[in-house]
Design a protein around this nucleic acid. Structure first.
Length: 700
DNA sequence: GGTTAGGCTTTG
């Protein structure tokens, strides 16, 4: 038996089968909860309403007279927005009565506003089955995170109904649950007061000398910049359906209090701004109690308020105003048709806004900072290379060739240097009014006559805030960042044929193994193999990407030591030598040949603890095989595989693994102060193969 | 409680 709760948000609705006004008493626009018993779920859902499956929900359909039904699988907290205004998110899962091709149950986010949220919080529990009507549908902003339905349902106190059914609790003769609930709810209703409404003044109706609330579409904006006074200053120009264009200035000490505007077309709502005449026009300036909320301006997108404010008013009316402004702006074509310009579409000499990820940065001088960024696309033009000292670089100082070819070096000047100082590598940015400056640079050939001028593009963010020049960190959940990530994820991280570029090689060569993960970004490319030793110890082999870094799961790093190589170009002195091999060429060019390095990371365990150790400098003597042979010689690879198999038989039990005596070196590793840790390397230890099955390494 | 800026016609 079900107890059925019918929940009406407003008496102004006429619902077939619903309670009469007498039953409800005299109430004024109040959410009402009515109980009845003995009926099945949905029994009192008005007959003119028809249920639709979650799979048919999209933003392009009208849902008048439609319902959805689902079990409450998640009930979020009741969030206080303003006096007697609330928001609550819940997730409902489709019930099985709708046959579905997929056995997977669909779930959808539901957002409740106002008193509806408050009463839902009281009346509904996780596990209840609800039927909802009178909802609108928006794009779910959390779709990529929660993988639930791409849309969400928006329910307001004025338009929506929720019908709740649940299995009744065990009967309690002293206090029937239905009665109890009714009285609890009555008390709730008597406490409810009217939500304060804000009124918004059309921009054409502004009169000087008043304090108003306004909504508008952003036509122009400057990111907050430091004023000469105590505050940051934001500058924006907005318009609305009246077509009046109004300049606004916001002074706030805290950046968080400024409007979070990402692009032209965003929608901004400001509370408590004062109107003032300047240059024969009305302007707006923030005044006491000022607050601002912004929204994305894309038609059909989720209406998600962007604010750092912990308490702000936001209800269905705001959703409506935003949506109206969005459609109006789209119909007016008043926004300059600035398509998003990725690096792949950058035109020489053009100014553009770039959405990108910061990979590394380095100060050039007091007025200039280098930002190394990418957006996952490749600029067809040769890009300016900027060489900086690795030790002044924040973030990796070099990248794989594949990645390097996608990186744009941006020089930011003057006031932007301070902003750049705060940025962290990894951050997603939008850089406004970036200039792609064509230029040429000399690339030396073997002889001076072969030097050639090569065109390149340099990226500059000029000083000042004219044209909205500036840098803004975008939140990870913004649609543009989500899109950027999708593009970036599609870029192969490491081309199999790609070798690391010279500076990366240099980095690896001169870098202790404990830092290789940082430089090679091994987290993503690591092949991890766990091999158990006797006593439950185990060993991990890190397999760096290598053409064979497949045959052999160990790893080697091929590197050229630039420190040992001279930059000068020499004439080959190969006269009289018939066989010219790579060593002769290398000598002639003053280049130290690439070398192979064997590197493994092992995790050892004895009865007391585990320990991470590297096998690096003495790796060749440990196995009795040179790294060069391992790279080129199948026999050498087999030899190592055999040794490893004897130490940790594939699929074998821990009891079969031999105990090892190893000689370790402990050392302190530092990396420009970034990390400081004790590391261990196996040293002076060789593996000897006994004719018996016992495999004991002999410490030297 | 007062101050800041008041887009722009584009340096390196």
């Amino acid at each position: 038996m079900f107890a059925v709760v019918v929940y009406y948000s407003s008496l102004t609705r006429t619902v077939t089968g619903g309670p009469t006004e007498q039953q409800l008493g005299h109430l004024d626009v109040m959410p009402v909860l009515v109980l009845s018993e003995g009926a099945g779920p949905g029994a009192q859902v008005p007959s003119h309403l028809t249920r639709i499956p979650f799979s048919l929900i999209s933003t392009s359909t009208n849902y008048t007279n439609k319902t959805v039904k689902g079990k409450v699988v998640l009930k979020g907290p009741l969030v206080f927005l303003a006096a007697d205004n609330f928001i609550l998110k819940t997730v409902i899962q489709e019930e099985e009565s709708q046959p579905s091709a997929s056995s997977q149950k669909l779930s959808i986010n539901v957002v409740l506003f106002g008193a509806l949220a408050k009463d839902f919080n009281q009346a509904v529990n996780q596990g209840d089955v609800v039927v909802a009507s009178g909802f609108t549908v928006g794009k779910s902003p959390t779709f990529h995170k929660d993988k639930l339905h791409p849309c969400n349902l928006l329910l307001s106190e004025d338009d929506s109904c929720i019908y709740v059914s649940r299995l009744p609790p065990p009967p309690d003769p002293r206090s029937p649950p239905a009665i109890k609930r009714r009285s609890a709810l009555s008390a709730e209703v008597s406490r409810t007061t009217k939500v304060p409404k804000y009124t918004y003044v059309r921009l054409s109706d502004l009169k000087a000398g008043s304090v108003v609330n306004v909504y508008g579409v952003v036509l122009f904006f400057k990111q907050p910049f430091k004023s000469r006074g105590t505050d940051f200053c934001s500058s924006l120009k907005i318009t609305d359906q009246s077509n009046q264009k109004i300049c606004c200035t916001v002074f706030c000490e805290k950046l968080d209090d400024h409007p979070k505007i990402f692009k032209i077309g965003d929608i901004v709502r400001m509370h408590r701004v004062k109107t003032k005449f300047f240059n024969d026009s009305i302007t707006l300036i923030n005044t006491f109690g000022f607050s601002v909320v912004t929204f994305d301006g894309a038609v059909g997108g989720a209406v998600e308020p962007r604010t750092s404010s912990r308490s702000f008013h936001f209800d269905q009316e705001d959703v409506q105003i935003v949506e109206e402004l969005r459609s109006w702006a789209a119909s007016q074509a008043l926004l300059p048709p600035v398509p998003k310009i990725p690096l792949s579409a950058v035109q020489p000499s053009a100014y553009f806004d770039l959405t990108c990820q910061l990979l590394a940065k380095a100060p050039i001088d007091t007025t200039c900072t280098l930002l190394r960024v990418w957006d996952g696309t490749r600029c067809p033009h040769t890009l300016l290379k900027v060489i900086v000292e690795p030790n002044v670089t924040e973030g990796p100082s070099s990248f794989s060739t594949v990645r390097e070819n996608l990186i744009a070096n941006i020089l930011v000047y003057d006031n932007h240097v301070e902003v750049a100082r705060q940025l962290k590598p990894g951050a997603f940015l939008r850089i406004y009014n970036l200039r792609a400056i064509p230029g040429s640079s000399k690339v030396p050939g073997l002889t001076s006559s072969q030097s050639e001028e090569v065109d390149h593009l340099a990226f500059h963010l000029h000083g000042g805030t004219a044209y909205g020049r500036g840098i803004r960190v975008l939140p990870e959940n913004s649609p543009d960042v989500q899109e950027l990530k999708r593009v970036m994820e599609a870029v192969p991280d490491n081309d199999m044929d790609d070798e690391l570029n010279d500076s990366a090689l240099l980095e690896i060569w001169s870098t202790p193994p404990e830092y290789l993960e940082f430089f090679l970004d091994l987290d993503k490319n690591l092949t991890t193999k766990r091999i158990f030793f006797a006593g439950g110890g185990f060993l991990i082999q890190n397999s760096y990407q290598w053409t064979w870094w497949f045959v052999f799961p160990g790893n080697a790093v091929k590197t050229k030591c630039r420190q040992c190589s001279e930059a000068a170009v020499r004439e080959p002195s190969a006269e009289g030598v018939k066989l010219i091999d790579e060593k002769i060429i290398a000598e002639a060019l003053g280049v130290q040949l690439l070398q192979f390095v064997l590197l493994m990371k092992l995790e050892l365990q004895d009865a007391t603890d585990t320990l991470d150790v590297f096998l690096w400098r003495d790796g060749e003597s440990f196995f009795g095989v040179s790294a060069e042979d391992i790279a080129a010689n199948q026999e050498a690879q087999n030899s190592i595989c055999q040794t490893m198999d004897s130490l940790c038989p594939p699929g074998g039990r821990t009891g079969e693994r031999p105990w090892l005596d190893l000689c370790l070196t402990a050392y302190r590793a530092e990396d420009n102060g970034r990390r400081d840790q004790t590391c261990y390397q196996i040293c002076d230890t060789i593996i000897t193969k006994h004719p018996s099955t016992r495999s004991d390494p002999d410490p030297a």
